[in-house]
C-alpha cells in the first residue's frame, strides 16, 4: 500500500472576532482550533472516510488538503512533493490531480453557465484535450456520471439535487484527478437518491482507479463504502483504522459512543439510555488534556492534564486515548 498523500501535524486556526469589551480590557484575541496536529496517510486506491460531528474540523481539513485554506502549521506531501511549497504551474498541476466535490450542488455550480460550459471550462483551463475534442469529451463525462447528452445544453437549475451532484462529480472528473476529496457529497439529498450517488462513487473508483477521501457525518455510509476510517473530535483525530474492524470493536470511548448513538434501521433496540452525556465543548476553548474527557466515563487525572498521542495499536490501527 503506497502513501499518496501524507498529512503531518496539520494545524489550522481561525481568529475569532473580538468584542469591543475584550478589546478595551486588552484580552488576547481568541482562535477557533479547527484542525489541531492532524497526521494521516491517504493510500493509493483506497476510500478513506473522515467522520465526526459538526465543528470537529473535518471540512476544514478537506479544504486544507486542496489548499482552499492554507494551514498554519504542519506539512502536506503528495507523492513525495511538498504541497504547501507549490507555486504557479506546479500548484495548478496539484489542483488538477486533487479535486474536490462539495456538499451543496446548488451553490457550487455556476448558475449562468450550461453544464457543457462548466465542463468545457475545466477542460480548457487545464488543457486536458485539444479544443476541437472538447464537445466529445463533455459527452464522455456525462456518460461517466450517467447523465443524458442533452444535459450539456441545460443550466443547473433545470436539474434535481441528485442530478446536480452528478454534474459536480463530472466537473471534478473532467481534469482527470487521481484523488477526490468529497465533503458531505450526499448529505443534502433524499435517502432514495443518496444510494445512487454512493453507487456512482464506488463505480467510478473501480473503473478509474481513483483514490477517495469521503467526509461525512453519516456513519452508516462510512461503514458501507470506506476501507479505512478516521474519527475526529474537536480538531483532532482520535482513532483511525480499518473500517470493518473499527466498527466491530471501536477502542476510543468517543468512537464507541458515536457508533452507539447512530440509530440502527432495525426495530427492537429501544432504550432510554443515551450513548454519551454532555455536549461538544467550544473549539474556542478546548478542554485541557483530552478534549473528550468532560464527557468520558473513563477519564482520570491524566486525561484532564495530558493530550493523548495518536499511536499505533497494531493492525494499522491508531488510537489517541490514555485509557484504551
Amino acid at each position: 500500500m503506497t502513501v499518496m498523500l501524507a498529512i503531518r501535524n496539520l494545524t489550522r486556526r481561525f481568529p475569532a472576532r473580538r468584542s469591543l469589551a475584550d478589546l478595551l480590557r486588552g484580552r488576547p484575541r481568541q482562535a477557533v482550533h479547527a484542525v489541531e496536529q492532524v497526521s494521516l496517510d491517504v493510500h493509493r486506491g483506497e476510500t478513506l472516510g473522515i467522520v465526526g460531528e459538526s465543528g470537529c474540523g473535518k471540512s476544514t481539513l478537506a479544504r486544507c488538503l486542496v489548499r482552499l485554506h492554507t494551514p498554519d502549521a504542519g506539512s502536506l506531501a503528495f507523492e513525495g512533493a511538498d504541497v504547501l511549497a507549490l507555486e504557479g504551474p506546479a500548484r495548478r498541476a496539484y489542483n488538477r490531480r486533487v479535486q474536490m466535490v462539495f456538499q451543496d450542488p446548488y451553490s457550487s455550480l455556476n448558475p449562468r453557465l450550461t453544464v457543457g460550459e462548466t465542463l468545457a471550462e475545466a477542460l480548457h483551463v487545464h488543457a486536458i484535450v485539444p479544443k476541437a475534442d472538447i464537445p466529445a469529451r463533455v459527452r464522455a463525462l456525462l456518460d461517466l456520471v450517467h447523465l443524458p447528452h442533452d444535459a450539456a445544453a441545460r443550466r443547473p437549475h433545470e436539474f434535481s439535487g441528485g442530478q446536480r451532484q452528478r454534474i459536480g462529480i463530472a466537473r471534478a472528473l473532467a481534469v482527470e484527478p487521481h484523488l477526490i476529496i468529497a465533503d458531505e457529497p450526499v448529505s443534502a439529498l433524499d435517502v432514495s437518491v443518496q444510494a445512487a450517488i454512493v453507487n456512482l462513487f464506488m463505480e467510478l473508483q473501480d473503473r478509474l482507479g481513483l483514490t477517495l477521501v469521503f467526509i461525512t457525518h453519516d456513519l452508516r455510509l462510512v461503514r458501507h463504502m470506506t476501507h479505512r476510517v478516521a474519527v475526529m473530535y474537536l480538531g483532532r483525530i482520535v482513532e483511525v483504522g480499518p473500517t470493518a474492524a473499527l466498527f466491530a470493536a471501536p477502542r476510543h470511548p468517543y468512537t464507541q459512543a458515536l457508533i452507539r448513538a447512530v440509530p440502527q434501521v432495525k426495530p427492537g433496540r429501544r432504550t432510554t439510555e443515551a450513548a454519551v452525556i454532555g455536549e461538544l465543548p467550544s473549539p474556542l476553548e478546548p478542554p485541557p488534556g483530552c478534549a473528550f474527557h468532560p464527557r468520558c466515563p473513563l477519564a482520570d487525572a491524566t486525561c484532564r492534564r495530558d493530550i493523548p498521542v495518536l499511536e499505533g495499536r497494531g493492525g494499522a490501527w491508531d488510537v489517541a486515548c490514555h485509557q484504551a
Binding site: D190, A195, A196, V198, E203, H224, V265
Partner: peptide, 24 residues
C-alpha cells in the same frame, strides 16, 4: 420496501446499494 432496501448496511461492505430509480 424500496426505501428500506436502499439503506446502506443492508448488503456486504462496498456492495452496490439499491437506489430507487427516478426522482421524488
Amino acid at each position: 420496501h424500496a426505501l428500506l432496501r436502499s439503506m446502506p448496511g443492508e448488503g456486504a461492505a462496498r456492495a452496490m446499494l439499491v437506489p430507487i430509480p427516478g426522482q421524488p
